[in-house]
């Protein structure tokens, strides 16, 4: 690890200023669970760390825009199509236990609950997970399935980026060096929504995903869904949407056999690599199987 200095901005503007001033010499640090590893291994050697932990507003999880008028007493509840905002500094533990997220986007809460270990969930943030932009980042597939957008602040002000355009390659995001992520926003799920997040790792805890899948859709009937969004992690250079699968699912009545058949279409949507955690062939197979397992769990009379 090379020596570095730390600056602790008190506002988003100060943070952006610091980044602009130091350019590529600077690096944002949130929970540090990814960055400190990189520093230790000399994969990054910034001269300045911009510690954003005092930007308390980025820790918030809230309903940002109400879809309909409701009384004061319902302020804490969330309704369908309300827009939910989760700050970049919210930790995995906070997101996993947030009643708001559990109600509006249970798949995101689930994904956060399956990150690392209690220690990592207590420090690691969803902003950090996104900015690391690993294809195996567990927060990302749910954000794809939620069609979230990312709020980014820079010297030119705040912009909003669709989550799919935010991730441009393995460990590469659309973030400019002088920008920071403020948070993500997405539409809340209502009672007719179904969703799941599943992750396969070698062990039960502290397991980087070999494959992960997030699914969200609207239930039309007991075994029919529309508006399906399926996203896979760790099977392509970035998290990917499985559009072939989504199309095939649309409005189709599912039973175990059709669910199996449609899941296998995922072969067309993923292009995994072989690395230390899994071979290409295995990952392809698992993408299909994880999706199949998840779909099966949604079918009537088939709850696991």
């Amino acid at each position: 690890m090379r020596p570095f200095s730390v600056t602790v901005p008190e506002s988003v503007d100060e943070a952006v200023e610091a980044l602009a001033r130091w350019g590529s010499e600077a690096r944002v640090i949130a929970g540090g669970t990814d960055l400190v590893v990189e520093l230790k291994e000399d994969r990054r050697s910034p001269a300045v760390l911009v510690d954003i932990s005092r930007l308390h507003e980025l820790r918030e999880i809230r309903v940002e825009k109400r879809a309909g008028a409701r009384g004061e007493d319902e302020a804490e509840s969330v309704g369908e199509s309300d827009v939910v905002w989760v700050g970049a500094l919210a930790t995995h533990a906070e997101v996993a236990s947030s009643p708001l997220v559990r109600a509006a986007a249970p798949l995101l809460a689930d994904a956060c609950a399956h990150v690392g270990s209690p220690q990592i969930r207590g420090r690691g943030t969803i902003g950090g997970n996104m900015c690391t932009a690993s294809p195996a980042g567990d927060v990302i597939p749910p954000l794809f399935a939620l069609e979230a957008s990312v709020d980014v602040a820079g010297p030119r002000g705040v912009r909003s980026v669709g989550v799919e355009s935010f991730f441009v390659g393995p460990k590469r995001s659309a973030l400019a060096p002088d920008e920071i992520v403020l948070g993500v926003r997405f539409r809340a799920h209502g009672p007719e929504h179904v969703s799941f997040f599943r992750k396969l790792g070698q062990r039960k805890s502290l397991a980087i995903s070999v494959v992960s899948v997030a699914f969200a859709a609207r239930r039309l009937g007991p075994d029919t869904f529309e508006d399906a969004r399926v996203a896979f992690g760790a099977v392509a250079p970035t998290v990917v949407r499985a559009r072939t699968v989504e199309k095939a699912l649309d409005g189709k009545r599912l039973d175990a056999a059709t669910a199996r058949h449609i899941s296998r279409l995922a072969f067309r949507d993923v292009m995994p690599i072989t690395d230390i955690r899994g071979s290409q062939a295995y990952r392809q197979e698992m993408a299909c199987n994880l999706l199949y397992e998840g779909l099966l769990g949604l079918l009537s009379g088939n709850a696991e």
């Binding site: 072989t274 690395d275 899994g278 071979s279």
Partner: peptide, 16 residues
């Protein structure tokens, strides 16, 4: 007996 060996009967190392 890792995931691949149990499922596919072959070693991940062989693939790599």
């Amino acid at each position: 007996l890792d995931l691949e060996k149990v499922l596919l009967g072959r070693s991940l190392k062989a693939a790599r």
